[in-house]
Amino acid sequence: MAKRKVHRRAKKILGEDPLALVWCGLRKDIPTPPKDVHRAAGKGRLKAGRHWLYYIGMTLAAAIIIPYFLADQLMNKIDWLLSSKRDRQAQARQRAARETNGQAPGATDDDRSRRPAPAHDVFDGDWTLTAGQLLLRWYGHSPNPRRLLLLTRDRICLAASPGRRLSPTKADDFDIVTEFAHHEGRLHREPGQRHFFVHFADGSWLNLGRLAEPEDAEPFLKTINA
């Protein structure tokens, strides 16, 4: 749960006590924008910065996992070569039957039903509007993916901490990077969901999630639904 120094810092940069605050982030990675749009926005970072320990961990994991993966693939290949011709023919007949029925190999009705709806995207898709422009500069304010969302009586504010490392419960070095009056943006949550949308006056929207601990998230979600 966010501690006193987080609330003290929030009050200092806002000039008032926030009605609610919560650490959150993008629900997905930022999609790749068109090159001309990215260039016009200053060609800023589109991915989160990583601490050096992350790269050491990835290197160690690769040293262990890759040999295991290659050995597993080799065993699978050997098993396939040793399988009977009759089994392979049966598999071929099954694939042919699926293709005849108009279904892609390996696809099922359940797979098609799980295709993400537009509401699962990170934003509305128009890079020229408010949400798209905000995404283009998201990591320019901070390489850390987390943002502190602050609500006041007349503003919606996003604050960021400048470093790669961040303790959401104790951070006290964050600053406001963008803010909107209530007539410029509004928050909306689908019933039963932990993520929420920021809808802007120009029709664009941003999908935010990865909320902090329930002690912070639940009061925040109750506030925006009140």
Rank of each mutant, 00 (worst) to 15 (best):
K170N: 06
R147F: 02
K12M: 08
W52R: 15
A41N: 12
Q103C: 02
L53M: 08
Y68S: 09
V6H: 07
K47Q: 11
H7Y: 15
Q193F: 14
A92C: 03
A217W: 04
V122L: 12
R194H: 07
A160Q: 14
T152C: 01
N101L: 10
S113G: 14
Q133T: 13
A217G: 06
F123P: 05
K5T: 15
D124E: 13
R165K: 08
H183R: 05
T152W: 03
R112P: 00
L19H: 12
A159E: 01
T128D: 15
D202Y: 11
K222C: 08
F69E: 00
A10F: 06
A2Q: 11
P31I: 07
T178K: 01
S204I: 04
D109E: 12
F174Q: 10
V198R: 09
D110H: 05
H188Q: 13
P145T: 03
Q73T: 04
K85E: 13
G185S: 05
D121W: 11
P118I: 12
T152D: 00
K222H: 03
H141F: 10
T130A: 15
K43W: 11
L158K: 03
G140S: 08
W205F: 07
V6N: 10
A107R: 08
S113F: 14
V198T: 07
A92L: 11
R50L: 13
L208V: 00
A97F: 02
D216N: 15
R189A: 12
A61T: 06
D111G: 01
D121T: 09
N207H: 15
C157V: 03
M58T: 09
S83Y: 15
R8W: 11
T178P: 00
A104T: 12
I224P: 11
D111C: 04
T178I: 01
P31T: 05
H120F: 12
P191L: 03
P162R: 14
C24R: 01
F200Y: 11
D72R: 13
L151Y: 02
P67K: 09
L26C: 01
R146C: 06
R45V: 02
Q89Y: 13
L211C: 02
D109G: 06
R189W: 02
V37C: 04
I176M: 00
D17L: 11
K222L: 07
Q103S: 02
I65N: 04
V122S: 13
L151F: 04
A92F: 09
Q73I: 06
D172Q: 09
G49D: 02
Q193K: 11
I64F: 07
N101Q: 08
S142L: 05
T178Q: 09
D121R: 15
F197M: 04
R8C: 00
R153P: 09
G209P: 08
D110S: 04
S167P: 01
T152M: 00
A181I: 00
G209K: 10
V122M: 13
I30W: 14
F180C: 08
A201C: 02
A226L: 11
A62L: 11
N101Y: 05
E213G: 00
E218T: 14
P18I: 02
H183T: 03
S113V: 14
I176Y: 06
G25Y: 07
A10R: 01
R27I: 09
T59A: 15
R86V: 06
H199A: 00
P214I: 01
K35P: 05
A20C: 00
R146E: 05
I156A: 07
A61F: 15
R98G: 08
P168H: 02
R146W: 06
